[in-house]
């Protein structure tokens, strides 16, 4: 297994509350997209709760759904993809 973190970009949609997040998650899935519910990365917020992780190649379509459905969000942010299964840092 490659032990280096993957470095491509990942986009996060942030919300005021989980209800907004779950609603958009459903809308995106209905549109054939593949959002992933994740804990909001610490670099993006001091609060806890859900964000939606969106791959770069689905960003344009995701934004289109948000606009078309007038979904309420707090914002969209991007971070380098930093998932490292060999980091061995647990809670």
């Amino acid at each position: 297994m490659d032990d280096t973190p993957q470095t491509n970009l990942v986009w996060y949609i942030l919300f005021h509350n989980h209800t907004q997040g779950l609603q958009l998650n459903t809308l995106l899935k209905d549109a054939g997209l593949k959002p992933i519910i994740v804990p909001t990365p610490r670099k993006l917020s001091q609060s806890c709760g859900i964000a939606l992780m969106i791959p770069t190649d689905q960003l344009v379509e995701t934004k289109a759904v948000i606009e078309r459905e007038q979904a309420e969000i707090l914002g969209i942010a991007v971070l380098p993809r930093d998932l490292n299964p060999l980091r061995d840092r647990y809670c």
Partner: peptide
Amino acid sequence: VLPQAFGDVYLSQENRPEGMGYYNF
């Protein structure tokens, strides 16, 4: 520490069932 640990352990998996979204939530 939770978001990074969860990411490394769970989100690094490929081909997870979509239904895991609830437990991620």
